[in-house]
Amino acid sequence: MFTVLLAIGVLLLLALIFGGILGYANVRFHVEGDPIVEQIDALLPQTQCGQCGHPGCRPYAEAIANGEAINHCPPGGQATIQALADLLDVEAVPLDGDHGAESAAKVAVIREDECIGCTKCIQACPVDAILGAAKQMHTVIADECTGCDLCVEPCPVDCIDMVEIGVTAQTWSWEKPQGIAASAINIIATDRQTEVTH
């Protein structure tokens, strides 16, 4: 009987000690904020375009954290959806067409001789990438432009074009090799033309 009581007592003591340690650790190493929103926000393209229906990327990140679909971000495209799916451990779904189609990276360009200096685009730009003053010509800082499109609509003289950023020798990247599936040649007799599945 004593041994049983002793065992229970020892276990109880251990439980209390570890409970105390865990309780202390919980207070001492408490994490502030909602890290999942930060992680989602880091995956979003930060164009701040509002195509998802939220006023910026962070609000959409918060909405995703609260259960909104992950396929509302056209600028991010399928790559972002895949990354979000991996992060949140949900199924990657195709991009929701209601919010726009995935398009090549673009940059806003102001036809400067047509600009009347109304500053409307400056106010619309979410990343302050348009330079200019009232009654002065405006111009887009191409490196800062996210291609969000938001400046096009407010322009009263329609002098803003969204120009696709073409591939230059500097931005060109190597293509992926065709892979095994591309070759239709039978090297040895036992080669069969079956679909390669990994």
């Binding site: 930060q46 164009t47 701040q48 979410p126 990247s173 992926k176």
Partner: peptide, 23 residues
């Protein structure tokens, strides 16, 4: 190919960080 993909992703990351900062 992989190297350039990684570089592209890094550049996109830098750009999106910048955009976020400016926003």
């Amino acid at each position: 190919h992989t190297k350039s993909s990684i570089r592209e992703a890094r550049e996109a990351n830098v750009k999106s960080d910048l955009a976020k900062q400016r926003f």
